[in-house]
Design a protein around this nucleic acid. Structure first.
Length: 153
DNA sequence: GCCAACGTTGGC
DNA sequence: GCCAACGTTGGC
């Protein structure tokens, strides 16, 4: 059974077009440093699960594409590198704190489904993204929510 | 274990 | 750039 997710990224750091330019249009999703998001990635995300690619912290926040989980969780090596922006001395190679998955681009959406638009849909009330104060960068999407959002495209 | 201070996220 | 919401840290 396919799982559905939403992952946030700042387009100024890594946007949907950056994913499209990667070899095999695949990239590891490093830098998650929140335990709840980590648990979802590590324990929840399965090979083949589908992911909404969301642009955050930008002029037009919203869903811009679809990706698929290409590799299940493995240690986030950027946490081991003192020179990396996401370095975390708590995480050691023999006992990693942080994990990442690989995602592959499925397709860009024909248009951005904006956050403001998602907020107007009563059937999406339960979506973590539109709940007050939500800051999770990785979150589950139910199957009905997934199809409902795609129907907006 | 409480909680104030601080840092980060992310919409606007 | 502002600031509300939230997570983390660290003193006690």
């Amino acid at each position: 059974m396919t799982g559905y997710w939403l992952m946030k990224s700042e387009p100024g750091e890594f946007g949907i077009d950056d994913l499209a330019l990667r070899p095999n249009q695949t990239e590891h999703w490093d830098g998650v440093r929140n335990y709840q998001a980590r648990n979802l990635m590590r324990d929840g995300m399965k090979l083949g699960d589908l992911v909404f690619f969301y642009h955050s912290n930008c002029a037009q926040p919203g869903i811009v594409g679809i990706a698929r989980v290409a590799r299940e969780a493995y240690p986030d090596h950027t946490a081991f590198d003192p020179l990396d922006q996401h370095f975390d001395p708590k995480s050691r190679p023999d006992q990693p704190t942080w994990y990442m998955v690989d995602v592959v681009l499925v397709r860009k959406l024909n248009r951005t489904i904006t956050l403001s638009e998602l907020k107007t849909r009563p059937e999406l009330e339960g979506l973590a993204l539109v709940r007050r104060g939500n800051r999770l960068s990785v979150m589950p999407v139910s199957e009905p929510q997934w199809h409902s959002i795609l129907g907006l495209e």
